[in-house]
Nucleic acid binder design. Structure first.
Length: 562
RNA sequence: UGGGGCGUCGCCAAGCGGCAAGGCACCAGGUUUUGAUCCUGGCAUUCAGAGGUUCGAAUCCUCUCGCCCCAGCCA
């Protein structure tokens, strides 16, 4: 019965929720209808995730509906692949739009009829000023514009001209349809804005039906009105367009009166959220496609191993306000780790293997393999156990062994020559000797196990320095691991001088081919997340992982307080 | 210097005249067969600045300073 959002947390109502609550309680709107209106000219990114969560979330909280509508008014930049990808991203994030997918292009006939309506009322005219002339006539912020010489054309002439435009009788750029508002307005958007321009393009939805296309301003508010959208939420840069949005609603016989509200878009440091620049990275092959795990696209983050839940939690943590701040990417990473820590089963993987041979193996273990039992999650028994084969030859990470006996126990909690370390979920071992290759590198380490230390503390006097992970050399499997660093090494790659490509991290991706994973992991389904203990969270690659060629992507490392 | 928007801890942010929430980050301890998790504690006498109104101001008024957006036939 209550109009209050069904939020369970104590997050205070944001200004948009306050407006909606008021509209509902005062009976201004019977039901809340919002919309997420992407242009299909690129993939959705983290900034869109915020908008999606906001619009769909508001609809959910207030028992309303949210439409997915493609704002496809510029066929030159749009295509079907983007439409498909966007729908998949929205669904994956966990949202369901009301009814069918909508398109601005569904309403092109109506828009044209409304253009004629404006012409008939003397509120619009066909203008033959060239783009550069048009720019001159528009004036500058502190200087008013001048009326176009075509501003006084008769209704009849305008009617004839717009029909010629529609019929394809003019070249692109030859003329446009403009609203007759005020060339001296202090709001540049009101200086006779363009309603229709000529674009001889095949439209992905309407084919060759049209060669004139409505501008954003002439389309958006009317789309909202047609769909009965009550609260049209967009980002701050559109605030200057609101008077124009309202002008159309007032001057046209639209079926409803939607209202536009603006909030501050998301900015993340070390990240770019510009579709144009993201497209550049793809086109110039700085990354491998829109869903490259380094991309801040929803598809990229998905492939990186971020869960939809984590992304939603992050978006919910963001303020819906009019301030334009830059969120620390650490805040995003917190929610990624929080989710993975709780839900990712633990496993072991050796990224940089060095062999270790247990010399006294036969002395204590009769079979060639001893099955160890390890919990899938240290704090959640419900996740069950897994079996780890312990064999005479194992791999540990090169970085987990040192011959330097002077290393302090506090600084190096790993295996040191002549000392003890715990093999996770298995024995305590002691490093006895190293055998080296001709180049000085370690060929293998000889070690001995301390009996009766599985699940038990070693005898008095034996103090393992720490716990390290391992994989059976004979039973484990080889895997490819892709390590990632942030794509940009600059806090604001998009700000200041230079190109975003100047700030690309040189080695943002490292492919490791000789990694060893515990058996079973190869059979994980693509997109399954794990915590490789002591290393970080990894995900089986959505496209390239298979049991015959396991491929895991680093999602994010563990917090490291070393 | 036209118009629009905004300035509260390193970052995000609540607060709307009654005496500065919360999250991230960071620091210090504790637990731990992951240098993870978890737990405990610390972290703005001050709200861009200056005046003013008031018993009382981050909240009201005035002025000043700073940042963002607008001159696409992009959205």
């Amino acid at each position: 019965m209550s109009n209050k959002p069904a939020v369970t947390d104590t997050t205070p109502e944001n200004f948009i929720e306050a407006i909606i609550s008021k509209d509902l309680s005062e009976g201004n709107v019977p039901k809340v209808i919002t919309r997420f209106p992407p242009e299909p000219n690129g993939y959705l990114h983290i900034g869109h995730a915020k908008a999606i969560c906001l619009n769909f979330g508001l609809a959910e909280s207030f028992n309303g509906e949210c439409n997915l509508r493609f704002d496809d008014t510029n066929p030159a930049k749009e295509n079907q692949d983007y439409i498909d990808a966007i729908q998949e991203d929205v669904r994956w994030l966990g949202f369901t739009w009301a009814g069918n997918v909508r398109y601005a292009s569904d309403y092109f006939d109506q828009f044209y009829a409304w253009a004629l309506h404006l012409i008939n009322n003397g509120d619009a005219y066909v203008c033959h000023l060239s783009p550069s002339e048009s720019s001159e006539y528009r004036g500058w912020a502190t200087t008013p514009g001048k009326d176009s010489p075509y501003r006084s054309r008769s209704v009849a002439e305008n009617l004839e001209l717009i029909e010629s435009m529609r019929a394809g009788e003019f070249d692109e750029g030859a003329c446009v349809l403009r609203a007759k508002i005020d060339m001296a307005s202090s709001n540049m958007n009101l200086r006779d804005p363009i309603l229709y321009r000529i674009r001889k393009e095949i439209h992905h939805q309407t084919g060759d039906k049209w060669c004139i296309y409505p501008s954003y301003d002439f389309a958006h508010g009317q789309e909202d009105a047609i769909e009965g959208v009550t609260h049209s939420i967009c980002t701050l840069e559109f605030a200057d367009h609101r008077p124009l949005y309202n002008w159309f609603i007032e001057h046209l016989p639209v079926p409803a009166t939607p209202h536009q509200y603006e909030f501050g878009r998301l900015h993340l440091n070390y990240t770019i959220t510009s579709k144009r620049k993201l497209k550049l990275l793809v086109d110039e092959e700085h990354v491998v496609g829109w869903d490259d795990p380094r991309m801040p696209t929803i598809a990229g983050m998905r492939r990186r191993g971020y869960s939809a839940k984590a992304l939603r939690n992050f978006c919910q943590s963001l303020a819906v306000a009019k301030t334009d701040g830059i969120v620390d990417v650490a805040q995003l990473e917190f929610f990624i780790r929080e989710d993975l820590n709780e839900n990712a089963p633990r496993a072991m993987c050796v990224l940089d293997p060095v062999k270790i041979v247990i010399n006294n193996f036969e002395q204590y273990i009769s079979e060639s393999v001893q099955s160890m039992t390890a919990a899938c999650h240290p704090n959640n028994a419900a996740m069950g156990d897994r079996t780890l084969p312990f064999t005479r030859e194992l791999y540990i990470d090169r970085a987990d062994f040192s011959e330097d006996t002077s290393l302090s126990r506090k600084k190096f909690k790993r295996l040191v020559m002549g000392e003890y370390v715990r093999l996770r979920s298995a024995y305590v071992i002691k490093a006895e000797a190293v055998t080296k290759n001709s180049d000085g590198s370690i060929d293998f380490i000889s070690a001995s196990l301390v009996p009766n230390t599985v699940g038990d503390n070693p005898p008095e006097g034996i103090k393992p320095r720490g716990v390290i992970h391992w994989v059976s050399a004979s039973e484990g499997e080889q895997a490819e691991i892709r390590l990632y660093k942030r794509l940009f090494d600059h806090e604001s790659p998009d700000g200041g001088d230079g190109e975003v490509t100047d700030h690309l991290t040189p080695d943002s991706m490292t492919v490791l081919n000789d990694c060893w994973i515990e058996p079973g992991l190869a059979y994980a389904s693509p997109e399954t997340a794990f915590q490789f203990e002591r290393e970080g969270y990894f995900v089986a690659d959505r496209w390239e992982h298979s049991s015959t060629r396991p491929v895991f992507n680093l999602t994010i490392g563990l917090r490291d307080s070393k």
